Simulated scan of single mutants.
Amino acid sequence: MDPRHDEPGVIRRRRYPKKDTVRRYRRTNYVSMDTDVTLADLVSWVTANVHGVAHEEITVHYSTLRWEDDATEEEKDAWDAEQAAQAVRTEKWEREQLARLTEKYGAPPA
């Protein structure tokens, strides 16, 4: 196994198609990335390191796009309502458990 198998930024080449295909002399190139790479950094890296291939021919596999933005007022209200409902459910559960344990073991010492 290649010791630099998952080293970010290192381009590796692998023979992908079978010998009897039209693409027999083509190779699949791939590179691993750090866990957090901005889209601008990715485009910049491709521009600097991948030559002779149009950007439209490059694919990104197994990635997750993540970004943060402000919540809408409706989302904030929904989250606050869920927190309030959770607090009610928690208190109800605690009271039920206290009653069950008091019945089983008696009142806690004062």
Rank of each mutant, 00 (worst) to 15 (best):
T35E: 10
W79Q: 07
W45Y: 14
D34E: 14
V22T: 13
T64P: 06
T72S: 13
T28N: 07
G106C: 02
I11C: 02
D70P: 00
A110S: 09
R66D: 07
Y16K: 14
Y105R: 01
L101A: 06
T72H: 01
K76D: 06
Y16G: 07
Y16N: 05
T64W: 09
A107N: 15
E94H: 06
S44H: 12
D6A: 01
V88F: 10
K18V: 07
A85R: 02
A48V: 12
R66G: 05
A40F: 02
L39W: 13
W67L: 08
L98W: 14
Q83M: 15
L39M: 10
E7Y: 08
L65S: 06
A71E: 10
W79C: 07
W45P: 01
D70N: 09
A87M: 06
T35Q: 04
Y105S: 02
D20V: 05
T102E: 04
A40C: 03
T47R: 08
T21A: 01
D6F: 04
D6T: 03
A85C: 06
P109L: 12
A40I: 03
T21R: 10
L42Q: 01
T64Y: 05
E74N: 08
W67R: 10
N49Y: 15
V50Y: 01
P17L: 05
W67K: 10
S44A: 12
K76G: 03
R15W: 15
